[in-house]
Design a protein around this nucleic acid. Structure first.
Lengths: 233, 233
DNA sequence: AAAATAAATGTAAATTGTACGCTTAATGTT
DNA sequence: AACATTAAGCGTACAATTTACATTTATTTT
């Protein structure tokens, strides 16, 4: 039986499998993307997403985690599969499919030196240059998924520092949705979700009065979900 | 430069790439899944999703289309990527990643003989037997995506015959969401979306009075979307 | 002490969702 | 021919949510 199994697999084609990361960050009111200059041929010097081949003994998710760690220095980055790109002609003449994953990182957390060392840069989404291969499409698709997901899961918090103000949170959601939100209604809405803990500190970088800092209460959020709550922002 | 490129790829691992289809159907008020008995070792005889290896010159999507055509006889089946399963140990000792795709078919359309010839059976989701490998997880995940998607895109119509009644449509959404809906509110809601065309025919299989048949107006729907409409059921 | 700035709070109107009860068209039964 | 039965289809009142909009407040700078 083992023989038959081997035989069954043996006639099939094998391919390269890669993973590409769409790394979103949020800074000064803008959604940003971490892209870098390719250092290998073909297309050396062109802008590209960060990615890697998946190794033989490695989970696809592990590969993404490895890449993200290499680039940002961070161990626990939020990431999630976006879509797999499997067109036969999508690569440089070698058959290679790529599992795209989008990641959300806190811009103040990551290791700037590491990022620079890899020739990576943060680009505002609007100013994004042309990327290699189908990476433009990957970004477009990932952004769509991010927007969709932001509506029913509190992923926005992954992009902010641990302590943040409500105006900051609003500005993030404005960047994600690409439209303005009413500050009074936004505040009302997020506070009604009961997943924010107000701190005694204020952030005074953007106003004389200062805005209270809040933290995301992951425990409350989980309890809410378990009780069948439909989280929505 | 070409040499370098070849060199760059040459040291990387290659893997088997498969696609597995989660084929949903809707019949007599129940959501069903098309599964079949494996005909090859290992695990011959076990229940499994329908799938295939992706060939070297074949797009991943093409592979899914090919599988669906083989099994159902249908050319134009709605399908969409669900998720890629890439754990290193997920397969039978060979490294194989699988791109799962969920498909929606009209139970009255497909070719019954073809389905039987392949040893395939329709199972109600509740009665589903244990499936091979990680196929159980694939079904669970696909169902979640289907539910999510059904909320903002009219994919439900893919599962119904071309002409259907509003009670039928309701029963489908009840099966997808696994909860009862109020017939009066449901009717109000779907009609308000203005994507249904009422026909002069009635379907009398389920009541003496008979229910009017409707068709989905894809054109209206597209126009709505373009005008920034947020379709929701 | 006054001016400037963004944060924070409140309220009314409009829209949407929910929970119902009743009527209607067709068929089968007496 | 009248009546019972069945699911389809319509309408309405109330609750909840979303939207639009104006004013006050805490703090710093001048």
């Amino acid at each position: 039986m083992k023989e038959q199994a081997i035989d069954y697999y043996a006639h099939q084609a094998k391919m390269y499998v890669a993973t590409d990361c769409i790394v979103f960050g949020f800074d000064k009111g803008d959604l940003k993307l971490l892209i870098f200059k390719r250092r290998v041929d073909p297309d050396r010097g062109a802008w590209s997403l960060i990615g890697s081949f998946v190794e033989l003994e490695e989970d696809v998710d592990e590969a993404a985690r490895r890449v993200l760690k290499e680039i940002t220095g961070l161990d626990r980055v939020f990431f999630e599969q976006s879509k797999t790109y499997g067109k036969s002609g999508r690569d440089y003449g070698f058959r290679c499919i790529s599992v795209a994953q989008y990641a959300l990182i806190r811009v103040d957390d990551y290791d700037r030196e590491l990022v620079e060392k890899h020739g990576a840069f943060w680009y505002t989404l609007k100013d994004l240059p042309k990327l290699v291969l189908d990476h433009d499409t990957m970004v477009k698709d990932a952004l769509e998924k991010l927007r969709r997901k932001a509506q029913y899961q509190p992923i926005g918090f992954e992009l902010l520092p641990e302590k943040f103000t409500i105006p900051q949170l609003q500005s993030l959601y404005e960047a994600i949705y690409q439209r303005e939100l009413d500050p009074r209604n936004f505040r009302k809405k997020v506070l009604s979700l009961k997943v924010l803990r107000k701190l005694d500190e204020k952030d005074k970088t953007s106003s004389k009065r200062g805005a209270y800092l809040y933290m995301f209460e992951a425990d409350n959020y989980k309890k809410l979900l378990q009780s069948g709550y439909n989280f929505e922002i």
